[in-house]
Design a binder for these strands. Structure first.
Lengths: 186, 186, 186, 186
DNA sequence: GATGAATGAGCGTTCATTCAT
DNA sequence: TATGAATGAACGCTCATTCAT
């Protein structure tokens, strides 16, 4: 019946539950029950509970690092930054539930090894976007352009619309903020 | 030894730990130890762990409700909305650690009774701010103006500056977004 | 407001709750809350939780001992025994809730000092009633006559009738059993 | 080490301790220690403490229900009722410790789900035995015939004799009471 | 005559984890 | 690939009890 896909099914169910009820409140028992297997089976596939989370983020590190690497090789101008936002938006799209999980479990993430590593990436992206010597309000605009995209994906569930349309609208607003920030700085 | 201030000290330590390590990961034992009392002492002052959180939010509900009430009696124009943002910023200022806690423990808050109640308030504020029939990007701008203020207070710890200056900068950016959203809608 | 009657009110409420929910499941907090006083107030009137129970039984020991003493001075014939049952029935009537409590918390009573003391009294009554050298079935009849009266008062709540009428009926049946037991033994 | 018999050993030890010291006063720690396992091990085999009790009663429900079912299909005459007592006595024999536990923890049983269910069965038996329109004393005789058998098994520990002989003596007395009750009613 | 504040011990329960099979 | 059985640690919570005021 279950072929080699059990590992994947664990990841799916785990992400679903972690996102829905939080990392701490989701027990391995629950995950196992949802899957119709034993807790011990999870331990055949993953060394620890944290390991499951780590595996979830595995596919995400690559694209992020690539984005950072690409941006580092570009001139640090507005055009590059707008493209960074665009590409980041795309990354977010493909990992929406994961980002929702991150967003809603920040306190927990801070204690998970993987958390630090993603916080680092975020900081690097921010460094790329940021205008370090501009006025405070422009710095805020830069930061906000990034965080708006995070929040935009999950917190704005009030607005009913096609997800893809919403993503593009969020991206547009974020890019606009970044552009405003760069008025007079180049 | 400790007089009538124990209840308050519990609240202080609890907030500190909840904010630092998350609600679930903070045990009553830890809180008690930090205070030099027994777990049972906490239960003399609070009925449950959740009750401690509720008490923390108690002083916050009032100001929020007042703000909502005030706004409901005003014309729903840009001027009113800008003032709502300004006042909300002030509320946030006085309850910064609490909002940080909310922000970072969203998954947990969702399961706490108090969480629902604050989500409700947020939705009402959003209703007041929102332009329901505008283009998607303008709706996003409205939402983002509110959430930027939340995120702005705690997530932008990268930007080093006087907290009050930062708050005003965040407010300025948020108000600007809202103004942009209202261009052509009145 | 509350004069010297607090001690009594504690006893009343305690008995009520002990009978309703059992000794172990009834906490001093509950008793105190029912009375509108603090737990500590209970400790002003009684040294321990067990002490409350003991005090409840205080008024009961006397009549029982008197009954035993009286019977010991009488000839050990059927007539005496029937009178013992009659008098015991009267004692039971005046302490109905207390006996219900005993009956329903036997396991607990066994661990309470007062329990042993009442078990002792019961054994003495049984000794008085019993026909030690009779056939087994007659011995059972003697024992049963006593226990029927216990059970009869509280377990037979199915039968709807005036309590006093029921008591007399129970007594009649018990006496009848005892009489049957004594057929051929004198 | 211990094979598939742990579950059973838990039941045995639990029943022993519940009967000896009462349900509330018997902690899971005690049970575990008696078995040389951890508290957590108990939870591998039973979902809750109450679940252990429920499992103890599991084998008992069937025979009782069968008895009730059988009696319901018979004419409601004395002969049937005497046979009911006889069969019930046999059921009691096979579950003596369990009945002792019930008897001595009535207050507790009332709060346990299983308690209600057994009270229900008892009421049905009583309904079968009872003479609803007879004089009070005859109704008492009917009830008492049933309760005598309960009490007879455990409360009459004073009488030293072979348990089986005692059981038969108790049954005889109970049947006799029932017969007396039916004099003149048919 | 009673309270406010606290304690120490213990409870039932759940958890992530282990390991022989 | 997985399970059955178990563990040790911790958790949130309640209890009877104490004592200064």
């Amino acid at each position: 019946m279950s072929r080699g896909n059990t590992r994947q099914r664990i990841q799916e169910v785990a992400l679903e539950l972690f996102a829905a009820r939080g990392y701490e409140k989701t027990s391995l028992r629950e995950i196992a029950e949802h899957l119709g297997v034993t807790k011990a089976a999870l331990y055949y596939h993953f060394k620890t509970k944290e390991d499951i989370v780590i595996s979830l983020f595995e596919d995400l590190g690559g694209p992020c690092d690539e984005l950072i690497a690409w941006a580092s090789g570009q001139p640090s101008d507005l055009e590059t930054k707008l493209e960074v936002l665009r590409r980041y938006s795309e990354v977010l799209k493909h990992a929406a539930p994961l980002f929702r999980f991150m967003q809603e479990n920040q306190a927990t993430m801070r204690e998970l090894s993987i958390g630090e590593s993603f916080k680092g990436r975020l900081m690097k992206l921010l460094d790329i976007i940021q205008l370090p010597d501009a006025e405070l309000s422009d710095q805020v605009r830069c930061s906000a352009s990034l965080f708006t995209m995070h929040a935009g994906m999950f917190t704005m569930q009030t607005i009913e619309a096609d997800p893809e349309d919403k993503r593009l609208a969020v991206l547009e607003v974020a890019q606009e903020m970044l552009t405003t920030a760069h008025k007079g700085h180049d």
